[in-house]
């Protein structure tokens, strides 16, 4: 098998296990390329990619942009705040305008869940979802699992605890879906107000005690907590959150094993994780960032190949 079963990467929902393994195998090759002195390959020469960001993002956009450049794609960047888009031009009009300038692929971040699925019904170009509201962030889940695979040898059978705001997290949902497809075990951990009802239907365990979660898991993926983003109060203070859900050195020292500490970034040092832990040997946070480029190169390459077929 050397092509994906899908035309777009709209979410992990739509991928098969074979698709995921193909992306990993391809990312392995690109990771090797990235270790060379000349890091650029011509795979996407003559392909134009637009990075459409309707929501602020620094690291995801930089990671995609770098992946596109490493593949020799032509790139245009479009950024707009969601509020101005809501009032002004519609998403379909914006994208059709850009596509009429002969753009081949779209990388899109958008605050509304399902926006890339909606867009895919209206345009021909391949779409890569770079995060759609509280729905999915598929490349993040791919790079997270790729990093687990790299450090622990496999994803299958591994135990992963996802800790934080599960309710509002696209990273959590994509991670859960991907890890379950790869036969890993998943636990979600956080204040009960941040864990959605019915989450067990995705085949995950729910735990409110972070120490118990750490004892159980092989890898802990910590999600960024944002108090200010919530219209409703789900927990009283960052202080209390970090006291009860933050990962510190003592929690790790109390374990009789070593676990991986992961974070999709940006980190709130002292909230989800202390600096001591973030900078420790447990942390693979920067490896995740590095792998992000290789994984995104793999996705871009595979979808562009699919398009030409």
């Amino acid at each position: 098998m050397n092509s994906l079963s899908v035309k777009h990467l709209l979410g992990i929902k739509y991928l098969t296990r074979d698709d995921i393994e193909l992306i990993f195998a391809t990312a392995d090759e690109f990771k090797e390329v990235l270790s060379r002195k000349i890091k650029k390959v011509p795979s996407l020469r003559d392909t134009t990619v637009v990075n459409l960001f309707f929501e602020n993002s620094t690291r995801t956009r930089i990671s995609f942009e770098l992946a596109e450049k490493r593949l020799s794609a032509d790139i245009i960047n479009f950024s707009s705040s969601a509020s101005s888009v809501k009032k002004g031009e519609t998403l379909i009009d914006t994208v059709r305008n850009i596509l009429s300038m002969k753009v081949d692929m779209i990388v899109m971040r958008h605050p509304a869940p399902g926006a890339p699925v909606f867009l895919s019904r209206h345009v021909e170009a391949s779409i890569i979802n770079a995060g759609d509201g509280t729905n999915e962030h598929p490349t993040q889940a791919l790079l997270d699992a790729f990093s687990i695979r790299e450090k622990l040898g496999a994803v299958e059978g591994k135990k992963v605890a996802i800790i934080g705001d599960i309710r509002h997290s696209r990273v959590a949902l994509s991670n859960i879906l991907l890890l379950k497809k790869m036969n890993a075990e998943v636990m979600v951990v956080g204040p009960p107000t941040l864990i959605p009802n019915y989450i067990e239907s995705l085949g995950v365990r729910v735990e409110y005690d972070v120490a118990a979660a750490l004892r159980w898991c092989d890898a802990a993926n910590l999600l960024r907590i944002q108090l200010e983003r919530q219209e409703i109060q789900y927990f009283p203070s960052m202080r209390e959150y970090s006291l009860y859900f933050g990962i510190n050195k003592k929690l790790l020292d109390d374990l009789d094993k070593e676990i991986l500490i992961m974070h999709p970034g940006p980190i709130n040092r002292g909230v989800e994780v202390t600096s001591e832990v973030a900078d420790s040997k447990h942390s693979i946070i920067l490896d995740q960032v590095e792998n992000g480029v290789a994984v995104r190169m793999a996705v871009l390459y595979l979808l562009s190949g699919n398009r030409m077929n």
């Binding site: 869940p113 999915e136 959605p196 009802n197 019915y198």
Partner: peptide, 18 residues
């Protein structure tokens, strides 16, 4: 507040506010 669909197995799978 801000819910857009029924809360249930579907809303969790779709990542939408139920």
């Amino acid at each position: 507040p801000g819910g857009v669909m029924n809360e249930g197995v579907s809303s969790v799978y779709l990542g939408m506010n139920g």
